[in-house]
Every structure is written in structure tokens, then in C-alpha cells.
Design a protein around this nucleic acid. Sequence first.
DNA 1: ATTGCATGTGCAACTTAATTGCACTTATGG
DNA 2: CCATAAGTGCAATTAAGTTGCACATGCAAT
Lengths: 146, 146
Amino acid sequence: MCDQCNYENLLSNADLVATTNRIQVLEIVGNNTFPLSAGDIYAILERTSSINRVTVYRILDLLVEHGVVDRISTGGRAFYYGIAPNEHHKPHPHFYCRICGQMDCLSPESVTVDIAPLLKTYPGRIEKVEIRIDGICKNCAKVGKK
Amino acid sequence: MCDQCNYENLLSNADLVATTNRIQVLEIVGNNTFPLSAGDIYAILERTSSINRVTVYRILDLLVEHGVVDRISTGGRAFYYGIAPNEHHKPHPHFYCRICGQMDCLSPESVTVDIAPLLKTYPGRIEKVEIRIDGICKNCAKVGKK
DNA sequence: ATTGCATGTGCAACTTAATTGCACTTATGG
DNA sequence: CCATAAGTGCAATTAAGTTGCACATGCAAT
Ligand SMILES: [Mn+2]
Ligand SMILES: [Mn+2]
Ligand SMILES: [Zn+2]
Ligand SMILES: [Zn+2]
């Protein structure tokens, strides 16, 4: 297991004390193969822990602020969270199903982007490029809900 | 003024009765050079009209559903709305300032995207590709808020 | 003209996701 | 041990959007 996959290291590398709550939140985000909402994360945690809902929000904010976790917008009302891009985890687009709310990670190669022209001309500070595909996932398409 | 720039035509072409309220909402969205939130749109409208807040939300939903208006997600909590892509209005990315919440339309050429590989392999239905750049706009960068 | 119906709108109440204020707890250095 | 800061819990609040239901308006069939 590499340094980047050890959640305690990920936290301390980001100048964050590795508290039990933080580790647990980060484990859920990191072990999941697709991004989850704060509500999803809390629902999973509360089965085994007595962590407070607000603490989950605060930890997620903190992890986003320190670049450990990525806050991903959806076609819906809640944010989703996934491990932030790093050397072991290339930036990649996501697919959001407008029926079931499930978010998929797409391979970095599935969509190619070039923001060079923007970088040359944009007068503000660019911090993040988010690419999201919206539609209906395989499962929901099968069920035939249009 | 072309057909696509006449808002009453835009509505009837989308099989929507051109009521005063719908025209007014569409005018605000269409005449603006950058996307606005439902709250922004309502704030502008209520100065001169007695339209209800809920009606604004319902009209925006309807316009999105009929492909007249585009619902754009941000790095923040509210959706923004702009004229949907059409032959006079190419799809383009947006910039969202995390400080002031202002959203800019970027030129279609500023970012190039190729989703061909995804289209070949993705098993669900793809309805929309959204590209959003987050960061700090020129004005807010100047003020020096980090 | 009167009725019936569908569409459009207004208003109050509600929901969801997230945030805030403040108190309590835990960890750490002196 | 104490002082302080960091971390957490809980209740209340907010922001954005949604829902239910009543009223209004337009139009077609009688
Ligand atoms: Mn991902
Ligand atoms: Mn635009
Ligand atoms: Zn789905
Ligand atoms: Zn700004």
C-alpha cells in the first residue's frame, strides 16, 4: 500500500491531524469507486459510529480545503465527494444519472480536454476544471424510465 | 432580429404558450450576457412585475424541460440559467467565481473537448456535457481576497 | 351566453442540503 | 496540573427549491 493510499498519511501530508472521525470519513470516500454525497457518507458512518452529521460536513469542507478530497457538482442539488486528483489518481470526468442520482467515475481517456487557449487569455485565477456528463445510467435506461 | 432572438417565437417553437410571465423570464435570461440564478432572475423581475417566486421556478423548470433554457451547475449551491445552445448560440464552457458567485460565459473556442471515446463505450444515455472552470474572477483577484 | 375543462399563477407550508453559534470534550505544551 | 487550541456535538437557522391546493384565465363544446 503506497503512501497515497494510506489515509492517515494522506491526512498528515495535508497538515491535518488524523482523528478517528477524519480517517473514517476519508476511508469511506477513498474506498468507494464512485463519488458519494455528504448524506451518503453520513448514512454509512452512522451505522457503526456515533459521529454527528455536522461533523461530517465540517470534515468534508476541511478535506476539500486541504486538497485531499474533491467536491464535485452534479445535475442535482447535493455535492458529491471523491478523492482529489493526485499522482495516483488522474483527474477524470464524471457521469451523473438524473434518475437515480448515481455518479460514475469515467476514465481519464474517455474525454479529452484542452484548456490551453483559456489559460492564455483568462484574466482571473483558474483553480479547477470540472467535466460532467449528465444523462441516464445503464440501469435506469434498462428500467425504461424515460 | 432573427427567429431565435425573438423570445415569443422561441417559446412557441418550443410548444409553449407565450404568457407574459414566460416572456419576461426568458427575456431576462436571454438579454443577459452571463447566466443568472433563479434568485437573481426573481430579484430583477419583482422590481417591475408582481410575479411570484414559485412561478419563476416553475417557468425555469419548464423552459429547461423544453430545451429553451440551460440549467448550469456551479461550484456553489444554486443553479444558474442561460439560453440553451442552439444554432445561434454554440455550447460553451462557463467560469464560476467562488468568491462573488459571478458566472462568465467563455468562448466555445477557449476549451476544446472530444467525447468521442466516451460515446463509443458508455452504456447509458448521454444527454449533456457540462464544462465548468472554477476559480477567482478578475475583479475578486484584484481585491486580493485569496 | 353558459358550462366545463385545461392551463397558468399565487400563496402558504414544507423539504432538503448545508451552515452557524455555542457549549462541551479532548489533546498538547508548559 | 493548568491553559489553550483543536475537535466535536447539538439545536437552531438558512438558502434554495418543491409541493399542495385554491383561484384565475382562456377557450371550446353545448
Ligand atoms: Mn471520480
Ligand atoms: Mn453561457
Ligand atoms: Zn441511474
Ligand atoms: Zn468574483
